[in-house]
């Protein structure tokens, strides 16, 4: 942990210094702030979930105004390999993630100590601490908020689905025929808008709970500062001799699952595929960016050293030439 913090501090300090070389007169905007202290995480205790889907219904109800209302017919797409994604006539589908269903209940049947057991697991966006969907979105449509929520701005998203491709769980889902791309080059760029759980960011801003947490009759989920949630997850795991998922996955997420059975068993026992994410181990997708950012701090120093070395060598050579000419 200490090593991790010092590495990040080094990276931030070094990059800031490198930036200052070229932009010393540019003030940092006040909106640039560290987010760690304010991040909220959710704890999902799998033991408590009875699969009643009250959370799924509540999610659909409170987020209905955010759901896409696509214009038909859809623009003709070029080239023809670009396929439309239309869920508008399947709005009631609840057994997977769709643009109209941001949370679903995944069922896992596992055999533990020779006995078959079934678990139901609420699945939605993990809200990663360093989300590749937001880091790699070319327009800034997918973004992480200071409170740890990762959301996609439907007014800006062009529906290129890059976020879904780089997400280790392939969470965002596309709806064609809606969004900004219709006003730009609808046939040639973009293909709709990507949708996923925004952890009821607007309700949280009003001091309310996310709908899925509020309506759950079994209190499966809770939300709080991440360090407290992680501490509680560990306390439960220790108490039940259980397992945790989401704390370290993809470098850390703001959705922490606690289970009495190992997650590799649950992962093997669930149906996976489009809109049905797995529970597999996930390495930090953005680790390469951290490491190469370090190289970006060192590279200018190497460049300066090389130029200074060349200057000294040239000066020596010039002196020698001068002496030879005399």
């Amino acid at each position: 942990m200490t090593r991790d913090i010092s590495r990040r501090t080094f990276l931030k300090g070094g990059l800031a210094a490198a930036g200052a070389l070229t932009a010393s007169s540019l003030p940092l905007p006040s909106s640039v702030k560290g987010a760690s202290d304010q991040e909220l995480a959710t704890l999902i205790d799998i033991r408590k979930c009875i699969g009643c889907e009250a959370c799924v219904e509540a999610c659909k109800e409170v987020n209905e105004s955010k759901f896409p209302e696509p214009e038909q017919p859809f623009p003709r797409m070029y080239p023809s390999r670009v396929k439309v994604s239309d869920w508008s006539d399947r709005r009631d589908e609840v057994d997977r993630l769709t643009p109209y269903n941001w949370l679903f209940i995944q069922e896992a049947t596992v055999t533990v100590n020779g006995r078959e057991e079934t678990y139901t697991i609420p699945r939605r966006c993990m809200h990663c601490q360093n989300p590749p969907c937001a880091d790699l979105c070319p327009w800034g449509a997918a973004r992480k908020l200071k409170n740890g929520i990762t959301r996609i701005d439907a007014d800006i998203c062009l529906g290129g689905a890059k976020c879904a491709k780089v997400c280790p769980w392939h969470i965002p889902q596309r709806q064609t025929g809606v969004g900004l791309y219709l006003d730009i080059f609808p046939g040639f760029a973009g293909n709709g808008v990507m949708y996923k759980c925004d952890r009821c960011y607007n309700r949280i801003a009003e001091g309310k709970l996310p709908a899925c947490i509020e309506v759950c009759p079994e209190h499966v989920q809770k939300i709080g500062p991440r360090d407290e949630i992680v501490k509680e997850a560990h306390a439960i795991a220790e108490e039940i001799n259980g397992y945790i998922y989401g704390e370290k996955e993809n470098g850390g997420t703001n959705t922490i699952y606690v289970s009495p059975v190992p997650f590799d068993l649950l992962n093997a026992g669930i149906e996976k595929g489009p809109g049905r994410p797995g529970l597999q181990p996930v390495a930090d997708s953005m680790a390469h960016a951290d490491n190469l950012a370090k190289a970006m701090v060192i590279a200018p120093m190497a460049g300066i050293a090389a130029a200074a070395g060349k200057f000294i060598a040239t000066a020596k050579k010039a002196t020698r030439l001068k002496e030879e000419n005399q």
């Binding site: 930036g19 909106s31 560290g34």
Partner: peptide, 10 residues
């Protein structure tokens, strides 16, 4: 690059 660091939010 700064934005993509783990604990930086713009």
């Amino acid at each position: 690059v700064l934005k993509n660091l783990p604990d930086v939010v713009f």
